[in-house]
Design a protein around this nucleic acid. Structure first.
Lengths: 327, 327
DNA sequence: TCGGCGGTGACAACCGTTTGCCATGTGTTG
DNA sequence: CAACACATGGCAAACGGTTGTCACCGCCGA
């Protein structure tokens, strides 16, 4: 079942069929209807690879994550999935296993079968990112590099709120639980933490870095306890959640003995024990935005100068893992 | 950069280059090395659509889920992702939004750009499933239909364990919290529940059905409370988790007043309040198995008669949401 | 009545591979 | 030494569309 069959059945040329199907305005209403009717009747379905070969467009966009296992990405996956489907694109999922090289290699290899890609937390150095962007349309999430459109979740601004919250509860020794060193977000958060504490003339200390994953929570909890701090802000909720269970094991009461703040508000943060105070990030929306940015850039008949970088606000969700010290 | 360029640079025919790159044994070692060297030097990357057009193989497998939002699928995504990457396939993600029609339509449309698909909990009636399987290589998960290879997680067997556990704790009124009516798994679980209770000469009651999603937990909790039961088994962890927070709101103590058992052991079941007793399902492994089944079926030079359906065992993980009644 | 014009549809080249078939050259066997 | 088998590599035809170019149509105004 090819357009040739349809052409034969309709008595027109294949080119006409092709146009009737993909650029309907280029063909008279009568012919168009006739062709479409026949196509429907014969249950014709276009052959994507053939189409891609001829046109260069594949109708596929990849979401690149560093670790599918991380619940943070679940939100992204949802967001991109929704928006891509809405825009008629297929959704490819790539896991780079935290390796920048793999990221480049994968994308490089697949660039011809992709119309574009969304990088959810790239591990790439800026120049490599720019180089990659020259090969294939890119949009980054939580990573801001000149020349590459991006959507960033403004967690740093939220960090200020979190610090405010903790200080107002009487905390003076607040420690940051550091994530992977190469993580852009991690650095941004730590930076924000320092300036926020400085505003209150408080010193900033940190523990870590720890590798991502809930497992890091145990080591992190111990380190925090060791630091003598009375409150901490964790790089992300996964850490915070991990800490919570470790603290419980060690008999440390949260928040009576130690307050814990997470980042992102991932699935589970609301029903943990205790429920986690965290910086709620519009992750899903970020995914949707990223797709919108990409798709509009892909559309040839679009007003090109789209905003290159959009920042999404974050807010503090206070639950039960923070409170005043109970001596 | 095409194989033609390489052919020119090497002084051989394009066909030779093609073979050197995709079926290395078909070409002498010397020529092969030479070609590969040139290819590497010129940074040649094959053009997937062209390859797909000519060969009919796309190197892409789709994972079809009814709702990316459901944490149950996170595990599947992980499993398939791992195994597909290992086997050199790209991973397409399709969300059918719980609609069987959409399931068929999507797969029908994309069948030419897919080498196969994994159906994670299909909503399709048996005959439609078989029809679809004729169009494109399929493997189902948690859905057993004659003629379609599948991997099923034997939660029903686990249910028996769960009932055993509850009965041994002294429970006599145990209710099943029913999931979506069209769900195959739901029916299987309810069935298992009945026979398990029967073995103890206990009657089986159920509440529901409830639509999937954690939100259903509230209604479910109320219904269970209303039923007068002292313990319940929920269709899945999402329900159970939702119930837990609802019960907490209502001041019902778990497990002192009510024991709850979930199914699947998804992310979060271990750190909820209280941690959930649940039927641990090897979801990730199921994903991997499904891919293995599919891939081996796709491989022309494979011992064809693979086992058509594999069942994975489930076991009860006792945590703190179950216990004896404290009058 | 004729030249020109906008709109419609046909022709054919091309996209980058794979692969069946065949010619050549080499080594093996009787 | 002849005949044969086999390994190797070349030719060219697909695969199923898209799209630039052009011929043709009827219609308009001059």
């Amino acid at each position: 079942m090819t357009i040739a069959d349809i052409a034969a059945a309709t008595g027109v040329a294949v080119s006409t069929v092709s146009r009737a199907l993909s650029r309907p305005s280029r063909v008279s209403a009568a012919t168009r209807e006739r062709i479409q009717a026949v196509a429907r009747e014969l249950d014709y379905v276009p052959h994507p690879p053939a189409r891609a070969l001829a046109s260069g467009r594949t109708g596929t966009v990849a979401l690149v994550v560093s670790d599918v296992t991380n619940p943070f990405y679940f939100g992204m996956i949802r967001g991109t999935q929704q928006q891509l489907t809405a825009a008629g694109y297929a959704h490819l999922l790539i896991d780079t296993e935290d390796s920048g090289e793999r990221e480049v290699e994968m994308l490089h290899t697949m660039r011809r079968s992709l119309d574009g890609a969304i990088l959810g937390a790239s591990r790439l150095p800026a120049r490599a990112l720019v180089a990659l962007a020259a090969e294939i349309p890119l949009v980054t999430v939580n990573r801001n590099v000149r020349g590459v459109p991006s959507v960033v979740i403004d967690t740093p601004a939220g960090i200020a709120q979190a610090v405010e919250h903790l200080v107002s509860l009487g905390h003076r020794d607040i420690v940051y639980v550091s994530g992977p060193a190469q993580s852009w977000s991690n650095q941004a958060r730590w930076q924000a933490m320092r300036t926020a504490l400085e505003r209150h003339s408080l010193g900033a200390q940190r523990v870590g870095p720890f590798p991502s994953g809930r497992g890091s929570g145990s080591a992190a909890a111990d380190a925090v306890l060791n630091s003598g701090a009375t409150a901490c802000v964790a790089f992300n909720d996964l850490f915070a959640l991990g800490m919570l269970t470790r603290l419980r094991e060690r008999g440390v009461r949260v928040p009576a003995d130690l307050s814990v703040v997470g980042c992102d508000d991932i699935f589970g943060a609301d029903f943990s024990n205790p429920p986690l105070t965290t910086l709620t990030a519009p992750i899903e929306q970020a995914g949707r935005m990223a797709v919108s940015l990409l798709v509009s850039r892909l559309d040839p008949r679009a007003p090109q100068p789209v905003r290159r970088t959009v920042v999404l606000p974050t807010y503090l969700t206070v639950r039960e893992s923070t409170g005043s010290l109970t001596a």
